[in-house]
C-alpha cells in the first residue's frame, strides 16, 4: 500500500450514475487485478474504497457509482484536481488459477475490477468469457472495453432490453469454463453459488472503516477463520466462503 496525492486527469460520466476516473501518480503498489484504492473526499471523515478498473505505470483508472454523499462529491471533481489516495489495497484475484477458459461474471458496479483481470488473462493467452449483468439498456457500461480486450462478452438485462433477458445465471447454464471469477451484489452471488461448477473466486463488498486491516470493521467468518474483507479479501475463494 502507498499513500499519495494523485491528479485527476479524467472524470467522465458513463451512465446516469456511473463514472470513470483516471488518476495519475504512483501505481507501484498495485500487484493484482481486483485490488482497490481508498480516496479522501473533502467533507467526509472516512475514505471511499473503490475497486480498480485498470492501471499502468503512471495511471490508475477507477469506475464508481454515485451512491451517496462521498461518491456524489467525487463525481464533481474537475480534471487537474488533486486527491489523497491509498493505492494497492486488498488481495485481488488470483490470475494463476484461471485455467484456459475462465468465466468472469459481473453484476452492475461489480463489473469494473473484472476488466483488469480480463486484460491480464488475455495477455497470458487465456480465452475468458465475460457475462455482464444489468437491469436495463441505459445502465450498460464497459461492454466495449471487454470486447476490445478480446473477450467473448455476453450481456444480460433483467428487462430483456439488451442481450439475454434475465440474470447472469441465465447466461451461465450452457457455458463450459475452467474456473470463475465474480463481483457483484449478494443476491447475484447466491444465485451463482447454486449454478456455478468447479472452483472460483468471489469479490465481496462491506462497509469499511480504514480499508487496510487496522479497524476490524469489515470482518467476516470463513471456513479458514475470521478474515478482513479489506485486507485478507476482498476476494475470497469459493471453498472458504460460509453462505
Amino acid at each position: 500500500m502507498t499513500q499519495g496525492i494523485y491528479k485527476v486527469i479524467k472524470n467522465e460520466k458513463l451512465t446516469e450514475t456511473v463514472y470513470r476516473m483516471v488518476l495519475e501518480g504512483d501505481t507501484s503498489a498495485l500487484t493484482a487485478p481486483g485490488q482497490f484504492v481508498n480516496l479522501t473526499v473533502e467533507g467526509c471523515y472516512l475514505r471511499r474504497p473503490i475497486s480498480v478498473f485498470d492501471w499502468d505505470d503512471t495511471t490508475v483508472t477507477i469506475i464508481y457509482k454515485v451512491v451517496g454523499e462521498g461518491t456524489e462529491k467525487m463525481s464533481e471533481w474537475k480534471d487537474g484536481s488533486k486527491a489523497d489516495v491509498l493505492v494497492g489495497l486488498g488481495n485481488g484475484f488470483d490470475v494463476a488459477k484461471s485455467g484456459d477458459k475462465p468465466l468472469l461474471i459481473g453484476g452492475g458496479v461489480g463489473i469494473p475490477p473484472l476488466y483488469g483481470l480480463c486484460k491480464r488473462l488475455v495477455a497470458e493467452g487465456k480465452k475468458p468469457t465475460v457475462i455482464l449483468g444489468f437491469n436495463k439498456a441505459d445502465e450498460i457500461f464497459c461492454k466495449e472495453d471487454f470486447l476490445a480486450a478480446g473477450a467473448e462478452t455476453i450481456i444480460t438485462t433483467v428487462d430483456g432490453s439488451v442481450g439475454i433477458k434475465g440474470f447472469v445465471t441465465d447466461a451461465m447454464k450452457n457455458l463450459d469454463y475452467t474456473y470463475f471469477y465474480t463481483c457483484g451484489p449478494m443476491p447475484m452471488f447466491r444465485a451463482i453459488e447454486k449454478t456455478a461448477q468447479g472452483g472460483g473466486e468471489y469479490s465481496f463488498e462491506e462497509r469499511m472503516g480504514c480499508g487496510f486491516g487496522a479497524c476490524m470493521g469489515c470482518s467476516c467468518k470463513t471456513k479458514y477463520g475470521n478474515k478482513r474483507i479489506c485486507k485478507d479479501g476482498p476476494v475470497l475463494q469459493r471453498e472458504e466462503i460460509i453462505w
Binding site: 471523515y45 472516512l46 462491506e206 479497524c215 476490524m216 475470521n226
Partner: peptide, 22 residues
C-alpha cells in the same frame, strides 16, 4: 469474532464503530 456487520458508520468529523472486541 465480535459483532455482526455493518460495524462502521460515518459521521460529521467522526465515525461510529461496533467491532465488539474482535
Amino acid at each position: 469474532f465480535g459483532n455482526p456487520t455493518p460495524r462502521i458508520a460515518e459521521c460529521t468529523s467522526g465515525m461510529i464503530n461496533s467491532v465488539g472486541l474482535q
